[in-house]
Design a protein around this nucleic acid. Structure first.
Lengths: 261, 261
DNA sequence: CCTTTGGTTCCATTATTTGAAACTTAGTCT
DNA sequence: AGACTAAGTTTCAAATAATGGAACCAAAGG
C-alpha cells in the first residue's frame, strides 16, 4: 500500500528529482535539494547531471542553481496541444464565458488531483500560464467532483485514497463517505455544485466532459461568488454547461480518431 | 554533428521515448512507435509502461494509443513561474502592447535556442500555452539576435555551433560570419531587427533585457507585418522598447536576480 | 595555515535493465 | 471451423547501469 514512495525504477526516481526542482519557486542549489532528498549525495548529483545534460533542467554555472529546462517546456507545449482538451475546447469555453458572463474553468484529472488546463473570464483579460497548469483538490471543487462522479469505481477509490480531506470551509465534504454520497447525487443529476466547499464565497456549477462510451475526458465549470449570484441562478445555466460539454466531447472525439499515414 | 543525441543512461532513453511520442501530432499506437524506435519491442514496451505509470504519458485503453501526459503541463506551469522573467515582466509587456498596438514577445535564451515565455497581442485575445512555451531559432529572430549580441564571446560561439542556419527566407543570415557581423551592429546600435529573416512578411524590433553588469536576462520584441507597417516605423518604437526592457531589468534585479557585489 | 562548507569524483558492490524468444490474444483468410 | 497473422505482453539469464560510502577538491572563514 503506497504510503509515499511510488518511484518505480530509475526513471521514476529521476522524474521525482524533476518534481523536487519544480517544487521550489526559484532556482535551487544542490544543497537545498539534498536536504529534502531521499537520495544520497552522489546519487542526487548524478540525477541532476543527467537531467541537465538531457535539457530537462538547466544549470546556471555562475550561481550554481538549477531550474526547469527548455526541453521540458517544449514537451509541455506539445502536451498541452496534444493531450489536453484545451485547444479543442477553446472556442467553446470562450462562448460559454461570454454567454454567462462568469468565469469558466476547464479541468482534467491528474493522479487524483484536478489540473486546470484553461480558464476564461468574461470580464478580466485572460491570464496565461499563471492559471493554466494549476492544480487543485478533487474532493472539494465542482470540476473535481463532476469528474469523479463519472469515473470507474476503482479509479474513484484510487483517487479518494489520494485526497487529503482538509476542511477548507464549513461546507467542505471532509470524509470519503460524505464524498461518495455526493458523487451518487451528482451522477444521477448529471452535474455538480461547489457550495463554498473550497473557498468561502466561491460557488460553481460543473459538468463532466464524457465520450460516447462514458469515459471522462475532463470537466467544465462556471464559477461565481455568493456576492454576485446564487447557486439557484448558477443551476439555471446547467443545461448550457452540459451542452457545451457535449460539444467539446464531440469535437474531441472526432479530432482524435486516428487517420494514420 | 550529433543531431540525434547520445541517450546516456536509462533516463536518457526514457526521455527519448517521450520525444518520440511528442514528435507525432496525434495519439500513437505502440507499433507506430516501434517502427522508428532504436529499441527492441520489449524494451520500448517497458518504457511506455513506466512513463505512463509516471503520468508523463497517458494511455487510451480503448484505442490503444499514447499521448503526452498531463504531468508535463503541471511541470510547465512550475517552469513558467520559475523562469522568473515572465511573471515579473507581465504588466510591462501588457503596457507595451497597448502603447504600440502590436504584438509583443518576451523571450529567454537556453542552450542556443530562443524560448518564448510570454506574448501579448493588443488586438486579439491572448493565446495561452499555444504561444508561450514555443522554441525558436536564435540566429534569425529579433529577440535571439538581441540576446546574442550582448552575450560573452564564448557563449555566442557555443550558441552559434548549435544553430542550423537554415535559410528560411531570402533575408535569412545563413552563415556564422554574416551573423557575427550583424551582432556587432546590434551591439553598437543597442537593438535588433528581424528583416523578414524567419518568416516572409514578418518584421520586428527587439531589445535585450540586461542586468547592471550586462548579464543577459532575456529580450523583448515588438512584431508586425510588412503589410501593416515598415521597419522604420518599428524603429521609431525602439526607445520605448528599450525603456520597457530597462524597467523589467530593474524589477527583475531587485526581485529575483540580485547581482552579487 | 588550518577548518568548514559545498560540490565532485571513484569504484567495488548491487540492483536494474536488456532483448531474444516464447506466449497470448484478437483478427483474417481459406 | 481451423490455420494463419499481426499486435501486444511476459519471461529470464546475461549484460549493464545505478548505487552510495568514502575520498577528494576548492573556496570561504577563521
Amino acid at each position: 500500500m503506497g504510503s509515499e514512495g511510488h518511484a518505480d525504477g530509475t526513471v521514476g526516481k529521476a522524474l521525482d528529482v524533476l518534481d523536487m526542482v519544480a517544487g521550489h519557486a526559484r532556482p535551487v542549489r544542490f544543497s537545498d535539494l539534498l536536504e529534502n532528498s531521499p537520495y544520497p549525495k552522489a546519487t542526487l548529483y548524478r540525477f541532476l547531471q543527467t537531467l541537465t545534460h538531457q535539457g530537462m533542467l538547466s544549470y546556471d554555472a555562475d550561481r550554481g542553481t538549477y531550474t526547469l529546462g527548455v526541453r521540458l517546456v517544449r514537451l509541455a507545449h506539445a502536451a498541452w496541444a496534444q493531450s489536453s482538451l484545451a485547444p479543442i475546447a477553446r472556442p467553446f469555453i470562450s462562448d460559454l464565458a461570454a454567454l454567462t458572463g462568469e468565469t469558466v474553468h476547464l479541468a482534467q484529472m491528474d493522479q487524483g488531483q484536478v489540473l486546470y488546463v484553461d480558464k476564461r473570464n468574461a470580464a478580466k483579460p485572460v491570464e496565461m500560464f499563471s492559471q493554466a497548469g494549476k492544480v487543485g483538490p478533487a474532493y472539494c471543487t465542482g470540476v473535481g467532483k463532476a469528474m469523479l462522479a463519472f469515473m470507474s469505481d476503482e479509479a474513484v477509490e484510487a483517487a479518494i485514497s489520494r485526497q487529503s480531506f482538509h476542511r477548507f470551509t464549513d461546507h467542505t465534504l471532509d470524509t470519503p463517505d460524505k464524498l461518495r454520497a455526493e458523487l451518487g447525487a451528482i451522477r444521477s443529476r448529471g452535474y455538480a455544485f461547489d457550495r463554498e466547499e473550497h473557498e468561502p464565497g466561491i460557488i460553481c456549477c460543473a459538468a463532466p466532459i464524457l465520450t460516447r462510451n462514458g469515459r471522462v475526458l475532463g470537466a467544465l465549470s462556471v464559477t461565481s461568488t455568493t456576492a454576485r449570484t446564487t447557486l439557484a441562478a448558477l443551476e439555471a445555466e446547467s443545461t448550457r454547461i452540459r451542452e457545451c460539454a457535449a460539444l467539446i466531447a464531440a469535437e474531441a472525439e472526432s479530432w482524435r480518431f486516428p487517420e494514420q499515414e
